[in-house]
Design a protein around this nucleic acid. Structure first.
Ligand code: NAD
Ligand code: NAD
Lengths: 215, 215
DNA sequence: TATATAATGTAATCTTATTCACATTAAAGT
DNA sequence: ACTTTAATGTGAATAAGATTACATTATATA
């Protein structure tokens, strides 16, 4: 069991981004990178990059070549790919749910969507991107059977709480919620919300603000 | 031209959430609400709610009834629905793009998707949720014609920068980017990124963390 | 009309996140 | 081997954000 100092959420977000960039650099046969280059790719500052690396106890850089990409990847993986990460259940195979299911890029990373659930008879039994859709009644069984620990919620917001309760009682401890609803969960469960409508409103606001004041 | 003290991004995000909750309350015929109730609905604290309201110069609450819902809605609208907010162009009518197009809930709010763009011949000319798909060559014209000022990018990340450049040179000043790519824009253009893969990795990390330490 | 009550509005404080600044250092060139 | 150079690693400073705490206040009740 590891015993790092608690890592800030913002740092975790940036680590995920660094990792993606580093994987791309690696696939381009690069072996080293400077903090200012990674900062450029991740749209932040060199100091921020170095601080993030420091936070995860990563000090393998040297002034003449920067950081070894493999070294950085190992360090980041050791933080993000925690030993006991399970698979994902997606609930609500509508437009958005299907888009997420068909998106195959996260096959690379540890957690991937192992089962889908819906109430619509039409959808039950269908297979999307090699992921089968089950009725809600089978959730508990499938979650155990497939080692699922995470949930993605893409049902209409009225049903989001109901679905959450089911996921939690099946043993899920992390939820990514696309429904514009505030979810009530026990405090050993982590919920992250992606609110697309809110983001659009935010962009509208700041687009206006930026062009008024030139940033 | 308004002259508020610069409003923090976090406050803007929460205002968008308050507004949605308030609209729902209003549709349930409620007329007043206390900060602690709104906090409950928005998953934050009463003090945070009052502070946000204070930031936007909103002090119409009274100790016995709380805040008038109409009053709050007007105040929030006056901030978020800025006078010169335009329509939205969505670029990349793939799985995710289609999901966003078919999602009709933001018809309510000022900006809505007025045109879609794609390079795929198959998709050009199609109409999804009463929004027509045009070739990239018509972007400049359509942006002007339809009063578009915002863009949503749902193309593969390799093309994201190219598409951004086109949007910007057509006059767009705010972009919501779903591609896992860092975009380069002039600094009068605002970019917000939604990185679904990163969010999943974050949920995986904190789900583990929370269940290890009980929050 | 006076009193009690419970929520508001906000200054002050605390916390978290980011940036600065610089001494340290690893290699490349002389 | 010595000098130069440009990046690292990190304490200290600053900025941004959230929370606390409480004096103020609008109304219901006595
Ligand atoms: N599509 C978007 O662009 C978009 C944007 C913002 C927010 N959202 C939110 O994402 C969620 C999904 O949006 P969508 O456009 O995919 O909706 P959708 O109507 O296309 O899909 C919803 C799916 O959930 C299923 N469902 C309904 N109740 C269920 C239940 N109790 N258990 C299991 N499945 C159930 C339905 O059968 C359907 O397949 C909604 O909450 C929506 O508000 C979507
Ligand atoms: N679907 C998801 O769940 C998901 C998750 C995470 C990230 N993303 C990101 O969102 C973006 C879209 O994902 P998707 O699953 O919808 O992909 P998709 O392949 O289904 O759709 C991409 C669309 O963009 C169009 N396109 C390609 N190049 C273009 C160009 N130069 N100009 C205009 N249109 C162009 C294609 O014709 C296609 O219609 C990608 O960047 C992806 O990485 C998607």
């Amino acid at each position: 069991m590891k015993r790092e100092e608690k890592i800030p959420a913002r740092t975790i977000e940036r680590l995920a981004i660094y990792r993606r960039q580093l994987l791309e650099l690696k696939s381009n046969r690069l072996s080293h990178i400077y903090s200012h280059q990674l900062a450029e790719l991740a749209n932040n500052t060199p100091a921020q990059v170095r601080r993030d690396l420091m936070i995860i106890g990563c000090s393998g850089g040297n002034p003449k070549q920067g950081y070894g990409i493999d070294y950085l990847l190992n360090s980041i993986n050791s933080i993000l790919d925690n030993d006991k990460a399970g698979q994902i259940a997606l609930v609500g195979v509508g437009d958005l749910g299907k888009a997420i299911l068909s998106y195959s890029n996260y096959q690379r990373s540890t957690p991937s969507v192992a089962a889908a659930f819906d109430i619509d008879e039409e959808k039950i039994g269908k297979v999307i991107a090699s992921c089968k859709c089950y009725p809600l009644s089978e959730m508990k069984t499938k979650v155990k059977e497939l080692g699922i620990t995470l949930g993605i919620i893409t049902v209409p917001s009225v049903y989001a709480q109901k679905v959450t309760d089911k996921l939690v009682s099946a043993g899920v401890t992390g939820i990514l919620n696309f429904a514009p609803a505030t979810l009530r969960v026990p405090n050993n469960v982590f919920v992250e919300r992606i609110d697309i409508t809110m983001e659009i409103e935010k962009v509208a606001y700041f687009a206006n603000e930026y062009s008024r004041l030139g940033k």
